[in-house]
Design a protein around this nucleic acid. Sequence first.
RNA 1: GGGGCCGUCGUUCAGCUAGGUUUAGGACGCCAGAUUGUCAAUCUGGAGGUCGCGGGUUCAAAUCCCGUCGGCCCCGCCA
Length: 591
Amino acid sequence: MKRSHHCGELSLDHVGQTVTLAGWVASRRDHGGVRFIDLRDRYGLTQIVFDSEHEPTVHQLADRLRNEYVVTVTGKVTLRPEGSANPHIPTGAIEIRTTSLIILNEAKPLPFALDDTITTSETLRLKHRYLDLRRPRMQALLQLRSQVSHLVRQYLHANQFIEVETPILTKSTPEGARDYLVPSRVNPGEFFALPQSPQLFKQILMIGGTDRYYQLARCFRDEDLRLDRQPEFTQIDVEMSFVDQEDIINLIEHMVRLVFKETKNIDLPTPLPRLSFEDAMGRYGTDKPDLRFDLQLQDLSQFAATCDFKVFRSAVESGGIVKALVIPGGNDFTRNRIDNLIDTAKEFGAKGLAWVKVNEEGNLDSSIAKFFNAQALREALPSAQPGDLLIFVADQAPIVHQVLGRLRLLLGEELQLVDQNRWEPLWVVDFPMFEYDDAAKRFVALHHPFTAPHPQDMPLLETDPLQIRTQAYDLVLNGFELGGGSIRIHAPQVQSKVFDLLNISKTEAREKFGFLLDALESGAPPHGGIALGLDRLVMLLGKTESIREVIPFPKTQKAQCLMTEAPSPVTLEQLQELSIRTTAKKPDSPL
RNA sequence: GGGGCCGUCGUUCAGCUAGGUUUAGGACGCCAGAUUGUCAAUCUGGAGGUCGCGGGUUCAAAUCCCGUCGGCCCCGCCA
């Protein structure tokens, strides 16, 4: 018996019709002579009535119903009696007077309540994800994700993009995250890698004349997990030929604005604000600033250079900087709380944390206040008001930025400065091309080794690589990196030069991506692109507490699936067939 | 690899910080009965826990100590 309607659509308009519904028993209320159940499917809830007077047989059968039984019912849509309508659900004006009930399947008592309001440990939810997914909230999130994907596809197709699938079984890439490896049975001792991103393939597609490519690409990285990081995730992967940075930023802005408008009726600004990497680091101490609250880093290096506090002066003299955060109302921080801040600053890498209270009279209150000219400090820090707490870090710039950037986030949360209803997207642009890795004694690419320098910085490749800025851009939203991209190198000589600087030998470059180098020499168009994290986008749109909520079957922090219990040992035969022997000593290992 | 928080009936939470008050308790769920207008239904009764696991301290451990397993958050890592 097929259903005629679903459980979310019946209303006064249907009164008098005979309908058939199917779904799960969401709850039951037994009054003896009359029994009610709420029947649930993806679309909603409908109340079903079993009346002993009119339909004694069906009423008796309904006694067997339990939560999450799967049933199909046929009956007449009727108006609920005076005073018993339920205004809280869309179908609350009507109910179904049942003439037929079929129990399609039974269900054991549940390991946890499916109620949206009841909190259950995530462990249990993940173990029984099939139950968890039945909850309206989870269905809504799946639907949101589907809606976002659909909008993205529509938009990109409308802009002449072609969706292309790139290989999942591919080649291990250097200079990135750890790869997930897949042994090749027919090539003993050799391995595929799962893609960390389709980066090289999309560039090859441009060289192949595809002009505009996109893919909702599954990517894999064998690194430790975070609340916004999973070992497999989906990115909206885009690449275009004959474009510059502005073209890509424009295209993506429109797409993101469309997604926010269509899914949540949110109007993002036009155009999106931009910050240079330098400004982002200087003012927020991070390349993914959360602009939902202000609390900017204040540069006090000039003041510090002339003050009597030796720690400050010597930091500046040795090429470092001094920056401060003005904590509004921080004057009432207890000594204990300040000590905790100092400890936290040290954990973040600072040698110490200087602090000064500005008391209600506007005087400086601190053990180091005697070193400062109060007037000079006021002029250097005009935003400081009576009642504030000033905290300072003096060190080399990267450390100052890292420490104050993190303290800013911590304090923003503690002092509830973050407006949860705000949406603060921005582009971070003009990234440096390289960083110097002191440990490895070499340059490393900040973005990736295929990112093109700014044309005017090109000569610096020979002279001062650390000063080179790239045509790279990150899209940041509320402190999360939504994605990033760049204009790519299309000149083979430039690409070779960059590999040199990264200390990737000719042999190694040849071995790892000889195909790209060959392709670049075969008529590569100028091209560039971007990749946005679909999971993070949906997580932010859905305001969920972690990325796992918007992934139907996510992994735990130990990169395991609690439902399937993957990964798991395999048989000795399987290993032998793959010419593999493991050195792991697990009690349940087949060795 | 490192730091922190958490683990008590099916679920959720109390009890732990004063070791004995506990035969480990409440709520929800479950089981049985009652109930013709509920929608967090109600009423009566009942079942259900080796306090994650192992070891130690003690006359006595859910409670203190050590280890371990699992979950979460963070650092490192994530070009």
